[in-house]
């Protein structure tokens, strides 16, 4: 839960829409819904690698792994379990 909240908070701080009450579920595709743009994808990758101490390999470099809160959390958990 804590991981989910942290990822969600990071996305919320980088939205490109500024209306009140912008809401998205943990399964909403943040790129397709237009809440973030392609410049954010790079920032998100750097954030995940630095803040969670993981390296995203070639096979996981797929926008689908970064498109929802749940997918991002799954990726981080997968990488963490892989190295421990």
């Amino acid at each position: 839960m804590e991981l989910q909240a942290k990822v969600r908070s990071y996305i919320e701080n980088n939205l490109v829409v500024f209306e009140e009450n912008v809401q998205f579920s943990d399964d909403d595709n943040i790129f397709e819904r237009g809440f973030v743009n392609s410049l954010f994808a790079m920032k998100l990758l750097n954030y995940i690698e630095q803040d969670f101490g993981i390296t995203v390999d070639n096979e996981d470099l797929d926008i689908a792994n970064f498109s929802t809160v749940n997918n991002i959390v799954s990726l981080i958990e997968k990488k963490r379990s892989g190295v421990s």
Binding site: A41, M42, V56, L61, D62
Partner: peptide, 15 residues
Amino acid sequence: SNDFKLVKMVKKDVK
């Protein structure tokens, strides 16, 4: 070297 990761993330034809 940074942006190359972004390219791989979004473009399957250069995977």
